[in-house]
Design a protein around this nucleic acid. Structure first.
Lengths: 108, 108
DNA sequence: TGCATATATCAGTATATGCTCATATATTAA
DNA sequence: TTAATATATGAGCATATACTGATATATGCA
């Protein structure tokens, strides 16, 4: 119960392992320039894998790998149209953080 | 000028290299469990290097290295009292993001 | 000055990450 | 079924990252 109290306090002492993992993974997703560029593209539109690759001058496999990473964290989703997959963002909270931080950084 | 217009659009196309670097570095700082634990400790109090190390059961050199990382990004600051350095957070925006994300993650 | 304490830094190692090429899978249309 | 297109996946490589032990630096005090 002491343990329970400590865990229910969000700050104060230490975080439990699962929370720590989720939080670090989330920020890690935003900690790579390529993934930031991809998410930035998806702010207001959906795009195919090749569409992203061509716009950002990246290899198809690079984009696909990074999209899988983002998909595993449920930061993006896709819809299929024929053989084409259209990706879009799927986490408002994360996109909001990204937007805020980009705007914050632009002032430098 | 076309280039200028594209850069001034925050979304839409691509981000300039400097913005990309700042944003990715910021999130990278939050993308490591050890640094998250350290910042979480500093939410509402200042702590010495050894204080952090003992609380989190980390080596002194580990904590010192991570604090240097965070200090370079101006996410923490310190004040000296004798031979002891008391560290505290120094970026409200980042701490707010961290808090939000921790609370968000706790619901899982 | 000399010693003790607190912190910083260096160098080595292990692991993680990201990119790329080659190839596999999946869907559509002929 | 076969070909064409779009995407996913696997393996290898180079680099980045994090931790650690040993050592250096800095401050305060006797």
């Amino acid at each position: 119960m002491e343990n329970k109290e400590e865990q229910s306090e969000i700050h104060g002492r230490d975080l439990d392992e699962e929370t720590l993992f989720i939080v670090s993974q989330t920020f890690k997703a935003l900690g790579d320039p390529t993934r930031i560029r991809i998410l930035n593209l998806l702010f207001d539109k959906e795009l195919s894998v090749n569409g992203i690759a061509e716009t950002l001058h990246l290899k198809q496999s690079t984009v696909s790998h990074q999209l899988r990473f983002l998909k595993n964290l449920r930061l993006v989703k896709y819809r299929r149209d024929g053989t084409t997959l259209y990706y879009s963002h799927d986490d408002e909270h994360v996109m909001h953080m990204l937007k805020q931080t980009i705007e914050h950084a632009c002032h430098h």
